[in-house]
C-alpha cells in the first residue's frame, strides 16, 4: 500500500507542479460571468442558470482534466524512461497502475473541491445580493421574511452535494477508461481521441438503444441482447449520471438512485482498471 500511495502522491505533485490548476481561473471567470449576466433575471431563474452553468462547467473541466492527465501518464513515462527506474524497484505493475490512478483521483478531488468552493461562494454572494434587494423591496415584517425564505430555498439545496459527488464519479469512470486505453496505446493523442469518442457514445448509446427497441417493437433476440449487454459494458451509460440535471431544476431525487449511480460508477472503475492491468502486465517495455 505504501508503494501505491508513494506513486499516487508523486503523480499528484507532478500535475500540481505542472500548474494544471490554472484552469481554475477560467472556471472562476465563468462562475462570476454567469452570475453577472443572470442578474437581470427573476431570482429563481438566476440561481438555476448559475447552478446549471457551474455544474456543467465542473463536469466538462473535470472530464478534460482527468482525460488529459491520465492519457499522458503512461506514454510520457515510457518515453522519458522514468517507468524503468520505478519498475526496477520492488514495485508490481498493478501497484504502479493503481498508484497512478489514485494520483489522478487525488488531483480530481482537489480540483473539484476548489471548483465547488468557487461555485458555492458565487451562489452565496448572489443569494446575499438578492436577499438585500428583497428586504429593500418588502421591508422588515412577515412578508419580507417569507420572501427571504423563498430566495434561500431557491438558492441552495443539499442535493447539490451528491450532485457534485456524481460528477466526481463520472470523471472517475472516465479516468479509469482512459488509463485502460493508454495501457495498450502508444500515443496519448490516440488515447484522448478514443476517450472523447467513448464519452460521446456513452451519452448517445442509451438513447439510440431505447429508440431502436421502441422502433423494432419486438423482443430482441438473444444474440442482440448479448450485443447490447456487451456495448453497455464497453461504453459506460453516461445518461444515468444525468440525474444532476434533475437536481439543478429542483426535482427530488431519491437516495437509492444516488446509491445506484455510485455503485455503477464503482463497477465501471473496477472493470476498466482490471482490463487495463491485464493489458499493461503483458506489455513489453
Amino acid at each position: 500500500m505504501s508503494r501505491i500511495t508513494a506513486i499516487a502522491s508523486n503523480t499528484l505533485l507532478e500535475l500540481v507542479r505542472q500548474k494544471v490548476f490554472y484552469f481554475m481561473l477560467l472556471f472562476a471567470a465563468i462562475a462570476i460571468g454567469v452570475a453577472f449576466v443572470a442578474s437581470g433575471m427573476p431570482f429563481a431563474e438566476q440561481f438555476q442558470v448559475l447552478k446549471d452553468a457551474a455544474l456543467g462547467a465542473t463536469s466538462i473541466f473535470s472530464f478534460l482534466l482527468v482525460t488529459l492527465a491520465t492519457a499522458m501518464i503512461l506514454p510520457k513515462e515510457i518515453e522519458d524512461r522514468t517507468l524503468y527506474t520505478v519498475l526496477a524497484k520492488p514495485v508490481s505493475r498493478l501497484e504502479y497502475l493503481l498508484g497512478k490512478l489514485l494520483g489522478v483521483y487525488l488531483l480530481l478531488f482537489v480540483a473539484m473541491l476548489l471548483m465547488s468552493v468557487l461555485f458555492f461562494v458565487a451562489l452565496f454572494a448572489r443569494e446575499q445580493l438578492v436577499i438585500a434587494a428583497t428586504l429593500k423591496d418588502y421591508g422588515p415584517g412577515p412578508d419580507g421574511e417569507a420572501a427571504v425564505a423563498a430566495v434561500k430555498a431557491a438558492a441552495f439545496n443539499w442535493n447539490l452535494v451528491p450532485a457534485i459527488l456524481i460528477i466526481f464519479t463520472k470523471s472517475a469512470v472516465c479516468a479509469a477508461l482512459t488509463l485502460m486505453l493508454s495501457s495498450f496505446a502508444t500515443s496519448w493523442i490516440f488515447t484522448v481521441m478514443i476517450s472523447v469518442v467513448i464519452y460521446i457514445i456513452g451519452h448517445v448509446q442509451p438513447i439510440a438503444r431505447e429508440a431502436w427497441l421502441a422502433q423494432s417493437g419486438v423482443n430482441p433476440s438473444s444474440v442482440m441482447k448479448l450485443f447490447l449487454g456487451f456495448t453497455s459494458l464497453v461504453f459506460p451509460d453516461f445518461q444515468l449520471f444525468n440525474i444532476v440535471d434533475e437536481i439543478v431544476v429542483g426535482n427530488a431525487v431519491p437516495g437509492w438512485m444516488f446509491g445506484q449511480v455510485f455503485a455503477l460508477g464503482l463497477g465501471y472503475v473496477f472493470i476498466y482498471t482490471l482490463v487495463g492491468y491485464i493489458f499493461f502486465s503483458n506489455r513489453e517495455l
Binding site: 508523486n10 522514468t82 527506474t85 526496477a88
Partner: peptide
Amino acid sequence: RVASREQVGFLPENPYFYKFL
C-alpha cells in the same frame, strides 16, 4: 517475481528522473 528486485539497484542508460523533483 517482484521480490527479486528487493536486492537490485538499476541505473539505466541516460537516466531520466522526474524533472519536477
